[in-house]
Simulated assay, not measured.
Amino acid sequence: MDTKRLNETSKFLSYVLRHEPQAIGLQLDGEGWADIGSLIAGAACDGRSLDIALIQAVVDSSDKKRFSLSEDGLRIGAVQGHSNASVRIQYIEKEPPALLYHGTATRFLDSIREKGLIAGSRHHVHLSQDMPTAIAVGQRYGKPVVLEVEALRMHQQGFSFFQADNGVWLTDHVPANFLSM
């Protein structure tokens, strides 16, 4: 399948499944699942041609495993990264490793030093288990910098951590005193 079409479809699915399902008249349930038939119909009304084979190809080819299909193959959901208020995925709390990483751009460092890492419009702060992934994330926003998060120490002090199905670690907030560069 055409790589450009897969990338465009992945970006579209990220947009509607994470942030703006109403843009195509799509309803997500509380766990973020959408009916694939409704997704295809809503995309068609928006002038986009989707089918089950294309959706499956996007799910299968995503290196970051952004999406998952229900066991019956009738629903699709974004694994994490939601900003939609109607979605509240119930992740299981886990003990994190000693260190996690957050990739960002240097232009955000002053704010981060002051406020720590905040979720912003998303439901959680996203953390990586390895430096290369964090660098890749940071590059999307400008000149990258990787922050080291003392995740286990945070957890021992009462902060909750979760891990999405694609391996991304999630927490509500990382105070500045748990960060180093």
Results as ranks from 00 to 15, higher is better:
Q22P: 01
Q22C: 03
Q27T: 06
Q27C: 08
L28I: 02
L28D: 01
L28T: 05
L28Q: 07
D29E: 07
D29T: 01
E31R: 13
W33E: 05
A34W: 06
A34D: 05
A34K: 02
D35C: 12
I36D: 03
S38G: 05
I40K: 05
I40S: 00
A41K: 14
A43Y: 00
A44D: 07
C45V: 12
R48Y: 08
S49N: 11
S49Y: 09
L50K: 04
L54H: 10
L54N: 04
I55A: 07
Q56K: 15
Q56D: 15
Q56P: 03
A57I: 07
D60T: 10
D60P: 01
D63T: 13
K64G: 07
K65D: 11
K65C: 10
F67E: 02
S68I: 06
S68E: 14
L69W: 03
S70A: 11
E71L: 13
D72G: 01
L74Q: 12
R75C: 11
R75F: 12
I76T: 06
V79F: 06
G81A: 08
G81H: 09
H82W: 15
S83G: 14
N84G: 00
A85I: 07
A85R: 15
S86P: 00
S86N: 10
V87K: 09
R88M: 11
R88K: 13
Y91C: 06
I92N: 10
K94A: 10
P97V: 08
L99M: 12
L99P: 00
L99K: 11
Y101P: 06
H102I: 02
G103E: 03
T104K: 09
R107N: 09
F108Q: 08
F108M: 09
L109A: 02
D110I: 06
S111R: 11
I112L: 13
L117Q: 01
L117D: 01
L117M: 07
S121R: 13
S121E: 12
S128M: 02
Q129M: 04
Q129C: 10
D130R: 11
D130N: 14
T133R: 12
V137I: 11
V137S: 10
Y141R: 13
